[in-house]
Write a protein that binds this DNA or RNA. Structure first.
Length: 946
RNA sequence: GCCCCCGUAGCCCAACCGGCAGCAGGCAAUGCACUCAAACUGCAUACAGUGUGGGUUCGAAUCCCACCGGGGGCACCA
């Protein structure tokens, strides 16, 4: 690659080389910065600019998923999306929009902290250094960001508003009837006014202060709970469900994760389950991402059904109340709270041996099973190959419809945390229940008629109900289909008081506290009762204090019994604080957990809108302009959000949740943060291992006849990520040095559709380089530096090509198909290189159309074409429709599916003329036979069936 | 195991609502020009019938079914 940059004496003096590109690029980057070229005017406030060429124009908010600045810097894969949004934003600016495009940094969180621990420096120091490095790398690429709007989540002025939003969430409750969040002040008013009964029915005035606080706290959208959480000793912190992999390890660091009961902050995201699910329909997002969110939220509708027992009724959740007549046994999770009360002293008479697990009594059996289940890690449960295990509790329940005795089992295939932790097992219509029933020889009663010839075990499809009538109880489902049977069953249960229609969720409340240092402190203190108290807005921000030892306390990764210790708790002088919160100065204890990394990214797009606002996170007028709905029914939000699919659930779900809370409270005007989402693909790379399995530098490997060699050694090729340890990293800096930023940009945009992952191939970059050299040559004579542009009109063919390309490029740009747009520009350029001189009427539109992809060279050529202002706000070319219609059309003529001839007819020839001409052309093939059918596709082809 | 996405020249990719598969484009290859020679640059050439097998249709890369291969998600969620 370095040879491209090597100055050779016989290279024409005015050729577009890497050295010239670098000079041009630095010059224009300085110019843009000096002139504030990419500043987008706000409607109001310090960032307003009524004289701006796009002030008051139709807005367009283009957003990237902001980066987490790692110590390793960027490789060529990272900026793919950023370049894509920049090309789109530059195009839209030229097309008349007021475009907001900014770049900030997600800077709190585990990796920064871990990296800081490794290097022994403060996380802030390393984080800020990394940010500077990223900024320099990104600036070199010529990204047109409004740098005034750049924020980082660790800015005190940023996280004061993160804390402020936390307070909004904390001070709200979800009114299920109104389907929205409301301030807790309104809840208290309803309690005290008697409009809303207290949980135990006593009048509000009779509750003690502590009791009132507890009632209110139970409603808050942010609350402290003591519940089973994911404790990760290796990281020294708890983790959200979304951060734990399926095999029970931490997504970051791959440490074991254990379930522990710990006191933690939670956010009541489950209250928004319906809206998070239903509002997906309003979003212009890739379907797979919507599907992943739907699956994650996991709404199941069905019924809660009570099965009476001697102890208490067992409440089960089922999605199939229509199969209740097939419920031949119950299963509780081993941890279910009723188990101890249910288990009798001895096995009932006639208990089968297979049910007892070989134990003399049910108590031992249950105890042994519980112990075995608890000892199993999730890994082991998987390794068990789904062999169903369980044990009989010795207890029976009464079937709620028939009254028949139903044996109760415990088994670990029923999860404590989902539904009610208990199920009614219907082995005929559920595969898991069927597998269990086979092991324990339980009866299988079909209640849905399977289709003819069905030989499987459980039949989960639809069909008429059978064996589903109890005349004495007044319930008959026989003959009904799924939906009707469900409805009738639920109706009966509700009328008889045996159950109720119910919805459950896979989604759990969001665990919001972390036992780390490098995060936003909570704006929370505790009084002498131990109950949390929110600090008033006036005390924000709560600044993250300096500590001697910012590294968290981590433990033996396998030590499940260890307890988290927060770094902030070691600063006793910070933790113990005297404050006046309204009733005089008192001693309080600060919350020492910090917020999770996701907090800042939940709302950063709102701060870009108005980064200097001091009294609010953003002025409402600015928020409404950039984020507000654009038409009735529109959800609002950013007009384009580009990032990787790895955030399909975590970030995008949390962010939507916060945004909806802010919407409910009247702080934002859109009910979704990101109207349109686009997932860019990944740039992947080949890596090579030698026979010992060690990675060798990828750039030194050569291909010989489909085999790969490093020196004399044959090496094995693998395909995957780019990474230091894989020795296959190529950086944007390398590419800028060898070819210039414009070439790098064009290459990344032209190598395939933005949404598709593809392999990096350094040697192919030269194609984009040659393209820009040709563009350069259409305007500048390489030998003399003189202009090659003429004011003489273009010939007809060139002019038609130009307008065809303009039309195609516009369509491609709107659809984010940059690879095909660039191909058309190459086509146009190749058309021009054959000409002795370049007509200005073609050169200017070409330069303008190249500008979104290669902005520096375009600016330079624009200047050489005689313009003295940046082309950033020049009008993007518009095709002349008259030049798009061809004068004549060539129709291929098919006979029985094979092309047998071609006819050229005037473009406006009527169909019967086309038909007649076509038939004439293939008369020889038809040999006098009368065609059975002739199909004329206007503008396309003629198909004859002989 | 279930769900989603994708398979087009040696490689990355085009092909609009089913309508001539590539004078969409690029890399690599080959030849020629430039050069003392090479690199750079330019010009030219060749290369697949769309993963496999069925089906629908006048017509299928495109729609449907099955299978094969690659990538991703979920993993006993009742």
């Amino acid at each position: 690659m370095s040879e491209a940059a090597a100055p050779a004496t016989d290279i024409p003096p005015f050729r577009y080389t890497a050295a010239l590109a670098e000079e041009i690029e630095h010059r224009w980057q300085d110019t843009w910065e000096r002139e504030g070229t990419f500043h987008a005017p706000n409607p109001t406030g310090p960032l307003a600019d009524p004289g701006h060429p796009r002030a008051g124009a139709e807005k367009l908010y283009v957003l990237d998923m902001f980066p987490y600045p790692s110590g390793a810097g960027l490789h060529v894969g990272h900026p793919l999306g950023y370049i894509g949004t920049d090309c789109y934003a530059r195009y839209q600016r030229m097309a008349g929009h007021n475009v907001l495009h900014a770049m900030g940094f997600d800077a709190f969180g585990l990796p920064a902290e871990q990296y800081a621990v490794q290097t022994g420096t403060h996380p802030r120091t390393t984080t800020l250094a990394n940010i500077e490095r990223y900024k320099a790398q990104l600036r070199r690429l010529g990204l047109g960001h409004d740098e005034r709007r750049s924020v980082t989540t660790i800015d005190t002025e940023f996280y004061r508003w993160t804390q402020w939003i936390f307070l909004q969430v904390y001070n709200s409750w979800y009114d299920a009837d109104a389907r929205r969040a409301r301030p807790v002040a309104e809840l208290i008013a309803e309690f005290s006014g008697g409009a809303r009964p207290t949980p135990d029915g006593r009048p509000w005035a009779e509750l003690t202060v502590a009791e009132r606080r507890r009632v209110v706290d139970d409603h808050r959208l942010a609350y402290v709970s003591e519940a089973p959480v994911n404790w990760c000793p290796g990281l020294g912190t708890v983790l959200a469900n979304e951060e734990v992999t399926a095999d029970g390890r931490s997504e970051r660091g791959n440490f074991p994760v254990f379930k522990r009961n710990l006191k933690q902050w939670m956010m009541r995201i489950t209250a928004y389950g319906d809206r998070l699910l239903d509002d997906l329909d309003t979003l212009d997002w890739p379907e797979p991402i919507k599907l992943m969110q739907r699956n994650w939220i996991g709404r199941s509708t069905g019924a809660h059904i009570d099965f009476p027992t001697d102890a208490a009724a067992v409440r089960v959740f089922t999605t199939r109340p229509d199969t209740i007549f097939g419920a031949t046994y119950l299963v509780l999770a081993p941890e279910h709270e009723l188990v101890d009360a249910l288990v009798p002293a001895a096995w009932p008479a006639g208990t089968r041996d297979a049910w007892t697990g070989g134990h003399a009594g049910p108590r031992e059996a249950v105890e042994a099973y519980r112990k075995a289940a608890a000892a199993k890690t999730d890994m082991e449960r998987q390794a068990d190959n789904r062999e169903k295990t369980g044990v009989f509790t010795g207890a029976y329940a009464d079937h709620p419809v028939t009254g028949a005795p139903v044996p109760i089992f415990i088994a670990d295939y029923v999860l404590a945390g989902y539904g009610t932790g208990a199920i009614m097992a219907v082995p005929a219509e559920d595969e898991r229940d069927h597998a269990f029933a086979e092991v324990f020889e339980l009866p299988v009663v079909r209640t849905v008629q399977p289709p003819e010839g069905f030989t499987g075990g459980a039949y989960t499809g639809d069909g008429p109900r059978i064996n589903s009538a109890a005349p004495a109880a007044g319930l008959d489902l026989n003959g009904l289909g799924l939906a009707d049977a469900k409805a009738r069953a639920i109706g009966w249960l509700e009328a008889e008081g045996r159950g109720v229609g119910a919805t459950t969720w896979r989604l759990r409340d969001w665990l919001f506290s972390r036992q780390r240092y490098w995060g936003e402190p909570f704006p929370i203190v505790y009084d002498e009762t131990g109950a949390p108290i929110a600090l008033p807005e006036s005390m924000l921000p709560v600044e993250l204090p300096e500590v001697d030892d910012f590294s968290p306390k981590t433990f033996d990764p396998e030590d499940a019994a260890s307890n988290p210790e927060t770094p902030l708790s070691r600063r006793r002088d910070w933790v113990e604080v005297e404050l006046d919160l309204g009733d005089g100065p008192k001693r309080y204890t600060r919350e020492t957990n910090v917020m999770p990394q996701w907090a800042g990214s939940c709302w950063y797009e709102l701060r870009y809108v108005d980064p200097t606002a001091a009294d609010r996170f953003a002025e409402p007028e600015n928020e409404a302009y950039w984020m507000g709905p654009q038409r009735p029914g529109d959800c609002g939000g950013t007009d384009l959000y580009v990032g990787g699919a790895e955030h399909a659930v975590l970030h995008l779900l949390y962010s939507r949740f916060w945004h909806k809370v802010l919407f409910d409270l009247g702080h934002v005007s859109s009910f979704e943060p990101y109207r349109r989402l686009f997932n860019q693909g990944y740039i992947q790379a080949y890596a090579f291992t030698d026979p010992r399995g060690a990675y060798v530098p990828a750039e030194e490997v050569v291909e010989v006849d489909g085999r790969w060699f490093h020196g004399e050694t044959e090496v094995r090729r693998e395909y995957g990520k780019m990474g230091k340890s894989l020795r296959n990293v190529v950086t944007p800096d390398d590419m800028c040095a060898a070819y210039g930023a414009d070439t790098f940009r064009v290459y990344e945009m032209s190598m395939g559709p933005l949404e598709v992952s593809r392999p990096w191939e350094t040697r192919a970059v030269v194609g984009s380089y040659r393209f820009l050299q040709r563009v350069w040559r259409t305007v500048v004579d390489e030998g003399t530096g003189a202009s090659r542009v003429t004011d003489a009109p273009a010939d007809e063919a060139t002019r038609r090509l130009l307008h065809k390309v303009i039309d195609g490029v516009r369509v491609d740009m709107d659809a984010i198909r940059f690879n095909t747009a660039i191909a058309k520009l190459i086509e146009l350029t190749n058309g021009l290189t054959r000409l002795a001189e370049t007509p200005r009427e073609v050169a200017e539109p070409l330069v303008l159309m190249v500008a979104p992809f290669a902005p520096h060279i375009a600016e330079e050529l624009w200047r050489r074409l005689g313009h003295d202002t940046s082309l950033t706000y020049a009008d993007f070319p518009v095709a002349d429709p008259a030049l798009l219609v061809a004068e004549s059309v060539t129709y291929p003529v098919q006979v029985n599916g094979k092309v047998r001839g071609r006819v050229e007819v005037p473009a406006d020839a009527p169909e019967d003329v086309v038909r007649a001409t076509a038939l004439e052309a293939v008369a020889g093939v038809l040999a006098g036979k009368e065609p059975r059918k002739v199909i004329v596709v206007k503008g396309r082809m003629v198909s004859v069936v002989a």
